[in-house]
């Protein structure tokens, strides 16, 4: 290796492998969440092949839990699409923040790397860029580590879940709700966000009561989003 510093947008085998190793500790936690998903999916009545396929192709925990909530003998397509989009829309922001570096890659590589973007590897790559280090290896290699352990966890949860007789008495039907709630509370909190959440909760409950089935998710998400767009944070980061 030469001693010349790598450009920040660099992406080579060594950087990808380093990224994989750096995300391994967090990946162990991802395994546990995968177990929770595998368990919840078994309870929701999904076949084993569907559960593994969903984790492999969707690879986005919160939206997979939300899909279980909408799962039945039939699934309403439009509410499902809007729910998945609303939960995963934060990926759009990740792409936008990575753009200054990723734009230097040829399109195939650029979009290839983005296929594996997720909360943890994105956050670590942004930290690397801010320290003046190459970060795209973290997105790709780290993303692969997260994906691998998400699959292992899903498989474990599935195997474990089908062996449990009465999941409800063990509180396991609450895995989904508690997971989603912890994701909400774990995010950024301030007065503005809390009021947005309260509006989302109230509009969701009203829609749940008075509007057709499954519309409450969309109504709550849009109500919160619109309030956020109208009542913007003061500190412009330009």
């Amino acid at each position: 290796m030469s001693d010349l510093p790598l450009p920040l947008q660099a992406l080579n085998r060594q950087l990808v492998w380093d990224g994989f190793k750096q995300l391994l500790p967090i990946s162990l936690f991802v395994t546990v969440f995968g177990v929770a998903f595998g368990l919840a999916a078994t309870q929701a009545g999904l076949e084993n092949s569907s559960i593994l396929m969903m984790s492999a192709w969707v690879f986005a925990g919160s939206s997979q839990f939300a899909a279980l909530e909408l799962w039945g003998t039939h699934v309403a397509v439009i509410p499902l699409m809007i729910t998945v989009f609303a939960i995963n829309a934060r990926h759009l922001l990740m792409g936008a923040t990575l753009y200054p570096w990723i734009k230097h890659l040829p399109p195939a590589k650029r979009y290839g790397v983005m296929c594996l973007v997720s909360d943890a590897n994105w956050a670590m790559s942004m930290q690397a860029f801010n320290r003046g280090e190459a970060g795209l290896g973290l997105v790709l290699g780290g993303g692969f580590a997260l994906w691998l352990f998400w699959m292992i966890g899903t498989w474990l949860g599935m195997a474990f879940g089908s062996a449990i007789q009465d999941p409800r008495s063990l509180g396991l039907d609450m895995v989904m709700g508690c997971f989603m709630l912890s994701m909400v509370i774990g995010g950024e909190k301030n007065g503005r966000i809390v009021i947005i959440w309260i509006l989302a909760a109230c509009s969701s409950l009203l829609a749940y009561r008075y509007l057709p089935e499954n519309t409450h998710v969309i109504v709550g998400a849009l109500a919160g989003g619109v309030l956020g767009a109208v009542w913007m944070e003061k500190n412009h980061e330009h």
């Binding site: 919160s62 939300a66 909530e69 729910t83 609303a86 939960i87 829309a89 934060r90 759009l92 922001l93 936008a96 709700g177 989603m180 709630l181 994701m183 909400v184 995010g187 966000i193 947005i196 959440w197 509006l199 989302a200 909760a201 509009s203 969701s204 409950l205 749940y208 409450h216 998710v217 969309i218 109504v219 709550g220 998400a221 849009l222 109500a223 919160g224 989003g225 619109v226 309030l227 956020g228 767009a229 913007m232 944070e233 412009h236 330009h238």
Partner: peptide, 24 residues
């Protein structure tokens, strides 16, 4: 470039959708 208002909409919506699922 994605505008500041759109970013604020997305940021608020991604938490709100989870709240909307859990509330019922």
């Amino acid at each position: 470039p994605i505008s500041y208002r759109v970013k604020q909409f997305i940021g608020a919506m991604s938490g709100s959708v989870l709240v909307a699922l859990v509330a019922p």
